[in-house]
Design a protein around this nucleic acid. Sequence first.
DNA 1: CGACCATTTGATATGGATCAAGCGATGTGG
DNA 2: CCACATCGCTTGATCCATATCAAATGGTCG
Lengths: 225, 225
Amino acid sequence: MQTEAAFLRQPSTQLPGGLVPRRRPNADAIEVLGMAMPFARNSEIYGENEPAEYLYKVISGTVRTYKVLADGRRQIGAFHMPGDVFGFETGEEHTFSAEAITDCKIAVIKRTALMAVAERDNEVARYMLALTTRELQRAQAHMLLLIKSAQERVATFLLEMAERVSTRGTVELAMSRQDIADYLGLSIETVSRTLSRLGKTATIEVSSSRRIVLRDHSALSRLNS
Amino acid sequence: MQTEAAFLRQPSTQLPGGLVPRRRPNADAIEVLGMAMPFARNSEIYGENEPAEYLYKVISGTVRTYKVLADGRRQIGAFHMPGDVFGFETGEEHTFSAEAITDCKIAVIKRTALMAVAERDNEVARYMLALTTRELQRAQAHMLLLIKSAQERVATFLLEMAERVSTRGTVELAMSRQDIADYLGLSIETVSRTLSRLGKTATIEVSSSRRIVLRDHSALSRLNS
DNA sequence: CGACCATTTGATATGGATCAAGCGATGTGG
DNA sequence: CCACATCGCTTGATCCATATCAAATGGTCG
């Protein structure tokens, strides 16, 4: 049971409200349960409506979780990057599907095993709560995104990515324009045009389609609603 | 400490994944901590950025949680009705504001007190997790809502309300058209026109502006994306 | 009754979708 | 190693759903 707990070691970012569990003395020495499984680019990690047997932690690569509506529209709910835990967005069954955007290494743990630990180990239970709370906040922020204008959505997206993957203001995008469009609830053309326009106003520089330099961070922040 | 736990008695709906705590033998006999406080129509329950000191459970009435963007647009994140627990959508500070739509009675509990209980009582911790998970699912469903067409959004809204407050297909709406518009990310005029159109096609009947009869449930379901 | 507020309905404007074509990078087979 | 096919992206032209502006209607409460 200590092994499962180790899956949760080293949260990728600081959590609010003192919800980060105190590190137990020997936690760092414990092995992660479940190997880091490799997933190839574009392969499915899990599908909507599959039983939510496992939880996942990104070791390397980028993952998209998404849902396809009846008429084929796809909404991407989140991009997950190294350190992020995902797959616990639900009760019994996954309500979203997950795919590897790039080649990935993903640590996998049995949900039931973890819940069993949580039943005994309060620290684990509280950590699960913290993760879920953070995911809830992310979803709520995403909700707000979807009522903004195209420019605002793109600006918000760029700032979000900058926080997560930027090196001195340069953002390397793992995902295609189509992925971005489906994340932002826009068409691919609108995403492209908006990036071009931001380029023309020197707010950003589109070095290549996947490499974007944020030139005027504060202008983006102002656009961020 | 048993008193705080009682705040969580009787979840309003069934939870997935066996996450509902087993009822402890004497739980039903325990008093709810924190009086059922009255809130007048349109009064604030808490404000965005206030410290999230309390959790809330609706005893009677309807509550909206919302966020106002810089330019004044308002997005309503959720409507809360009797039995719903809200206010735990966040870490340290509320990210949304909450207001009473109608006169309300709301049970209030200190968050820190509850977290303290959760630290000892695993059942409570797991129940908190279940509540948060459900809220996450609600937020994700709301995300999907916001990429749909106006007709689909209104249909989804009506079906959602029907599940929560309908008496034999008749829905009594506690909220104004403006509230509905801000919940659905539409203008008030579009909401009104869409309801009128659904009325003309005999899918619903708008008895009065706040009373709507669902005539063709399956047509609505088909519109529900 | 009259004032006020919520709602509906109508006319027009517009942001982003859609349809369509061109372009550049990457990879493949001859 | 080059010609060509493919794929992802950009750019242009047009269309349409919904927003916005405006006015009429209806319902509620003093």
